[in-house]
Each structure stands twice: as C-alpha cells, then as structure tokens.
Simulated assay, not measured.
Amino acid sequence: MRTAVISLAAGRHGHLLMQQDGLARSARAPERYVIVSMADPAIEELTASRQPVADVIRLPLTDGRLPLAAARNAGAARALAAGVDLLVFLDVDCIPGPNLLDGYASVAQDGVLLCGTVAFLPPSPHEAYALEGLAGLAPPHPARPSPPDGEVLRGGDPHLFWSLSFALTPSTWNRIGGFCETYTGYGGEDTDFASTAVVHGVDLWWVGGAPAYHQYHPTHNPPVQHVDDILRNGALYKQRWGAWPMEGWLHAFGALGLVEYRPDSDTWCRRCTAWSSST
C-alpha cells in the first residue's frame, strides 16, 4: 500500500523538522511527504536535503487567515496525483510513532475514516524530543478512545473526530468530497468534514497501534486568540448543519465576557454584534 503523509505548516519549524525526523525513522517510509506551506516561504529550504523528501506546496493566506481546509485539499490532490493508496494527515505538531503508517495501512479500507491515538507531550527539557522515548512521556489524550495495539473500535462518534492524525483511502476521500473551503482560519472545518462523512455513510474507526505524539507549545484555554475565527466558522457550520459546533469553547468565551448567546435567534455574538455566515 503506497502511503502519503500530508501536513500543513505556517511557522513551527522545529516541530515540522521533528515530524520529518520521525517519518525518517518510521518502520514504513511514506511514498510521498506533502507539506502545504501557508504563507511561509522558508519551509521549502528548511526541509530540503532531508528525508523523507518533502514535496512542498505554497498557498497564500485567505483574507489574512490560514486556509486550513483549502490546504488539506491541495495536499490531498498532490498526493492523489502521485497514485497513492492511503492518505495520512498529520498536524504539524505531531511526531508519528514508528508504527503509525503500518497501523493505518493494516486496517485501511474504503468507506472508513481512521483515527489513531494522540498523546500530548510535556515541554522538552532540551531543544528537541528524543524520538525513542516519546511513548513514555505521556498517555493518549483521555478525551478520545485509545484502543490497545492491534485493536480497532468501530462506530466512533463523529463529534470526536479530530484532524491531528487521521487516514483514509482515495475512494473514501472522493466520497466525502474533501474539506469545505468556505471555512478559513481556526476551527470548524474538521467538524464539518466528519459531519459530511456521516452523510455519505463513512464510518469512524479508532485504531490502536497508530500513535502520534503532539509536541508541546504554549496555548490558551479556551483559545481566545481564535475567538473571531470560531464565531465566524461556527456560524457557517450552523448554517450548513443546523447546530453550533465547539460549544464548550463558546460557553467558555461567554464566561469570560467575550461573547454572548442570544436564545431568541440561536446566535452567538461578540460585543453585541451578531455573526452570520456572510461575516
């Protein structure tokens, strides 16, 4: 099975190089490693002359925002043109475990969306993590299923899908139709993707033995730096699917006084200005 690993990058250069090193040490080398550079011209030179060879695509920002959905579609299109049998998407912060590609390839079939476990690593005391010791640094994230090696949990809740690490066949990708490119900036596009998969009869499987390790970086909880993106993309999702996504974050923003909910119109607002999908 010919595999392609697709990653999106804008900054996080050290994390990207750790991902590339992890793939180089993988039990199965990917036939294609596609990196979609979102307004970051340094990535091409950064990853050159290293293994696996990176095929870098450049995309500009969309109205100043990261085109995450469009970038995944562009990466998939490049990989499919190369004739691969399995698309594996990895967040730029994720280092693949040595058996991640084997784990996905061993259970891949048409009509299924595969998700492996992701462990969130603590800060590294050195400049980079030691690849051989990643498994002992943190357990898989407790908010997602984590079957043991060699086991698969079928019939997964699509609301738990995340784009940090997932895989699917070209047939399944075409069946879903890729990501909705109307989403720009942070949040919502992966929830939309999972909802679209359900409509097209695609099942979600949680795969044991396909681990990834998310490298530490400072963040906000809730992600207040993305509140405008979340409101805009949440309104788009509401228009398409009839319900608000990311409600935990919206309620947390509300508790901080950043947004408010208007029950009469089922609308989340910022500074008393209602958001709509056309905003």
Rank of each mutant, 00 (worst) to 15 (best):
V202L: 12
S276T: 15
G133S: 11
I176N: 00
D63A: 15
M18C: 10
P218K: 03
P60W: 02
H13L: 09
L114P: 10
S146F: 03
P245L: 03
T273G: 04
L23S: 12
T169K: 06
A39D: 15
G187Y: 06
D149Q: 12
D157L: 10
R2V: 00
A135M: 06
L86F: 10
A82I: 02
R78H: 09
R72S: 03
E132S: 15
A4Y: 05
G185E: 10
Y104Q: 07
N73F: 07
T219Q: 13
R78N: 07
D55S: 14
L46R: 00
I95W: 08
T47Q: 02
A54N: 05
D149M: 01
P96G: 10
R232E: 04
I57Y: 08
R175L: 13
P41L: 03
I43P: 08
D190L: 07
D190I: 07
S195W: 06
S146K: 01
A235C: 11
Q19A: 01
D55H: 13
S37A: 15
Q20A: 06
S278Q: 15
P148K: 05
R78P: 01
M38W: 00
L87Y: 09
C115F: 00
L80F: 11
L131H: 14
L160G: 03
L87K: 13
W206H: 15
A255H: 12
A77D: 13
R232M: 06
L68K: 03
Y186G: 04
D93V: 11
